[in-house]
Design a protein around this nucleic acid. Sequence first.
DNA 1: AATGAATGAGAGTTCATTCAT
DNA 2: AATGAATGAACTCTCATTCAT
Lengths: 198, 198, 198, 198
Amino acid sequence: MPSANTQEKRRDELVRAAFHQVAERGFEGLRTREVAAEAGVNIATLHYYFPTKEALIRGVLEHAMGRFRTTLAPHGSPEDQLRNHLRAVRQLLQEEPQLGAVMAELALRSARDASIAALLRETNDTWHTTIRGLLRRAARAGHLRPELDSDEAAALVVATLTAMTLPAAAAPRTELALRQLELWLELPPPATAAQATD
Amino acid sequence: MPSANTQEKRRDELVRAAFHQVAERGFEGLRTREVAAEAGVNIATLHYYFPTKEALIRGVLEHAMGRFRTTLAPHGSPEDQLRNHLRAVRQLLQEEPQLGAVMAELALRSARDASIAALLRETNDTWHTTIRGLLRRAARAGHLRPELDSDEAAALVVATLTAMTLPAAAAPRTELALRQLELWLELPPPATAAQATD
Amino acid sequence: MPSANTQEKRRDELVRAAFHQVAERGFEGLRTREVAAEAGVNIATLHYYFPTKEALIRGVLEHAMGRFRTTLAPHGSPEDQLRNHLRAVRQLLQEEPQLGAVMAELALRSARDASIAALLRETNDTWHTTIRGLLRRAARAGHLRPELDSDEAAALVVATLTAMTLPAAAAPRTELALRQLELWLELPPPATAAQATD
Amino acid sequence: MPSANTQEKRRDELVRAAFHQVAERGFEGLRTREVAAEAGVNIATLHYYFPTKEALIRGVLEHAMGRFRTTLAPHGSPEDQLRNHLRAVRQLLQEEPQLGAVMAELALRSARDASIAALLRETNDTWHTTIRGLLRRAARAGHLRPELDSDEAAALVVATLTAMTLPAAAAPRTELALRQLELWLELPPPATAAQATD
DNA sequence: AATGAATGAGAGTTCATTCAT
DNA sequence: AATGAATGAACTCTCATTCAT
């Protein structure tokens, strides 16, 4: 009995292989045999763990979403949290370019797959609400431009970060976009805080 | 007299059918037979006009890009041009939701298709440069916040508009994001409001 | 354009190949690839004519049923028709042993396939009714044992002929059974007619 | 103490499960995994008891044949034995419809499986001979129509009873057929009617 | 005696592409 | 210019069987 540990491991290997394949070839080019080969198992073994391709894709979805869980750390002031979040997402997408690719693939697939749409929508709604909350608290503390609407600004943050998942050819210079966003949001940049609004 | 005229028409019908199919099912679900059926011709006829599926996709690419050509009208002040552009794009995506879907599909495909990547990159670079130019001229005329960097702001505009092409579940509330962008960029909205920060 | 003739021909070849395969290996061993190979075409060609395996089986069903259409000739007296029918069926099953095998396969399949069951039931009901009609007319003319019930006797005829389709190991000596049936039914055998009942 | 007793029990459970599956889905739909599941054991356990699917089928064959052993009771006059046998078979098939289904499946399979064919042929030969013996003894005692040939009549009995195992859609009204058979064979039905033909 | 995990071989079906007409 | 027919290659999924434990 190779222990529950082993089983989880194999499942995970398969998900990672599928994740990799989606990043490389898109859902359009996702082939179960290729996934199995990359995981070093027979195609029938893949189906032992994931009865259908859909189930495997569900695994990829969960895996991808999970990667973002660490980007929102509830430490420090709202401005800090916000700044840290933006940077964490940027760093994550830089260090793990495949993650962006997979997220973008999932985004497109959500137009045709209700289960992906539901999960994505819920996650994004929560994301938006969280950022809006941070913005509101920052605004209340006077650390934000007054003409800024927290709902709209949150939407802009989410939109920009989402655009960052797209291939560079399609969404160029998103790094610059993010820097501009930071400038506008974090009125007091680390060094010269609390002057502009006084 | 089945002239070049007639031929062009049929080609166009096929491209439109393919465009429609990509919007509905994605590249993942694009089937040449379905395209031919929608255009009312035999599958072999499709291959007469487009020797390969790739060629057909190239046709879709050109068709989709062409739809955006009218959104940048060289009339009025830089601010007006900018404002009108944002609104024209928003309106286009609203009136023709399939266009957004196809653009997003092309965006993803650019990661794997060099020819799409090249065209997309060039188009987007031009787009970015154009918007940056408008921003610079507006800034020089004093119609823009001084802390705004025209390069970064242009990137933000492009990123936001690009995000608008994604399915709603993946990029929610992009309308709000765009409104915020307009607020920040067009300091003097049509009615020329009083400076809020004074 | 190879003419409708050619198309029908290919369809027919495929059905015959499938028929042959069912006879040889049963539905259990029916493989579309084998059918295509026997017909000398690619497996994809088979699917061009029969979108699914089920459709192909339907073709086999119709083909098999059609083979029996000639065994009931409406010539002569009821007794003659009956006698000729029994002999025609026996001869058909002897000359074309595969037909019996396929019919038996279809019989079994009817337990699980409603469409086969419906067709088989209707055909058999008509068969039973026809034979019963012949028996009644023969009885009315005094050419049948009086203690014979036409409904029951018809059922016995159908049952016996049906049993003849089964493999010899499972239904042995059905030839003898049929001879006995003829004896009982055709009171006046060809040679010594019109004596017993006088 | 998992004695031979326990082992036998498990074997039997597996055979019964297989029997049930064959009755429900035919050999065409017989899946070892399904059998194991129905018996509540792992698929590997099934292979411990039956190394191959063929071995399991052999078990089903024996089980099915065994069910008929009680239908021939050596008590009473030949006519009684015969009458009782017919009725016992009819009752058995009525009470246990799955038995008929399995027998029919085995009948078909005998065309492709020599071991089934051998067993079936031997059993049916014995059956035929037994019935012929009863008919002969009844004839000798004057309890049978003189024009009846015991060999042929025995074949007719076997054919009719065999047809009864087929699905109703394929062999309709077999009950009627059996009644007619009884009428013809058992000249003196229980009440000893007056000789009709005199 | 029993099992979870793994697999080779093969199933039906799909699809872009070709070709004779 | 257009088509019906045909195909090779590949796809997802299935299944009896095996093996280490």
